[in-house]
Amino acid sequence: MGTIEVVLGDITRQEVDIIVTAANESLLGGGGVDGAIHRAAGPRLAEAGSKLAPLEPGKAVATPAFDLAPVKHVIHTVGPVWEDGGHGEDEVLLSCYVQSVLLAEELAADSIAFPAISTGIYGFPAERAAGIAALAVRSMRILDEVLLVAFDQETCDALTRSLAEPIEEWCPTCGEKGIPLVFGRPVGEVSAAAAAGLVALGGCLVSGEGDDPVWQCPQVHRWGGGTRDEHRSQAVCFEAVAVTLGEDHGRSVP
């Protein structure tokens, strides 16, 4: 089970396989963290990025890290520009983190470092962005190490609070506390978590339409749906497995 850590400092100095940059659609470099990463990686980073541009918000692509070695790759992802929260900004930001982790897995990376995407000139509120970042990485525990690198104390504190915040769900029918509902053939760790009452097994039948339930209460009421709810359930499931294995939840902060 991979670890998640909050770091206050310079993302270009992190000893990881992959660094994520909060890019603009041109992938030519910009201000803030993106500019710092481009300066550290050298001009070849913009040259490589331009061949993959334009990049839609919420998507992620990878280039070599060039002068950032021993970092192997830079993942470029375009965050949402904050308007008022009613234009899908949360979903796009969640996708930035999820797509970056999935791409890192494709690249056989063990470790990745994220900046606080969209919280600079794009204006995404820091506390809200931290909650989305924490949810995304808690629900995607497929790498050995994830670093959330904060450029200031306010962002560091917001990320720390978000990682420590328990994810709880309550049945809309009876009010009892829900646990994650896992479909498909469970691996041994998930079976052990189910035996401990930390997750529920839903069998092998799923619709695949994105509207399957993701929570179950002791009265066997089932509910939930949508991307964000699925990630909340996945995060709780991963942490239930960690408890079953006797491992730390991976929310350590220096």
Rank of each mutant, 00 (worst) to 15 (best):
W215P: 11
K177T: 12
A150Q: 00
A48H: 03
I132E: 12
V236S: 13
L205D: 15
G197W: 10
V253P: 07
G30K: 03
L163V: 10
D90C: 04
V146C: 01
H38S: 07
L27T: 04
G208T: 13
G188E: 15
G131N: 12
G224C: 12
E91R: 13
Q219I: 00
P80V: 11
D84K: 11
G2W: 03
N24R: 01
L135N: 11
A41S: 08
G49L: 03
E5P: 02
I37E: 05
A65P: 09
G226S: 12
Q219W: 02
W215H: 12
F124C: 03
A62T: 10
E47S: 05
K59G: 05
D84Y: 09
E105W: 04
E127A: 13
A36T: 01
P186N: 04
S162W: 00
I179R: 15
P213C: 10
G2E: 00
P57S: 08
A60R: 07
D144Q: 15
E189F: 13
C171G: 13
N24T: 02
L27N: 09
A150L: 02
L55Q: 00
E209I: 04
T12C: 07
G203Y: 10
V149G: 08
A36K: 03
G184T: 12
E168Q: 11
C237V: 08
D157M: 12
V20R: 10
R39L: 03
I11V: 08
A196K: 10
H73L: 01
E105T: 06
P172L: 10
W82N: 12
S139C: 14
V253D: 09
D212I: 06
G30P: 00
H87N: 15
T77C: 14
E83I: 12
V214M: 07
G85Q: 03
G86V: 06
A130F: 02
A133V: 07
R39W: 01
F124M: 01
T12N: 00
L28M: 09
S139F: 10
L8E: 02
I112Y: 13
S207T: 15
E247C: 09
A116F: 02
P254C: 01
G79H: 07
T227D: 14
H38Q: 08
E176A: 14
D90Y: 04
G79M: 06
C174S: 10
V78E: 09
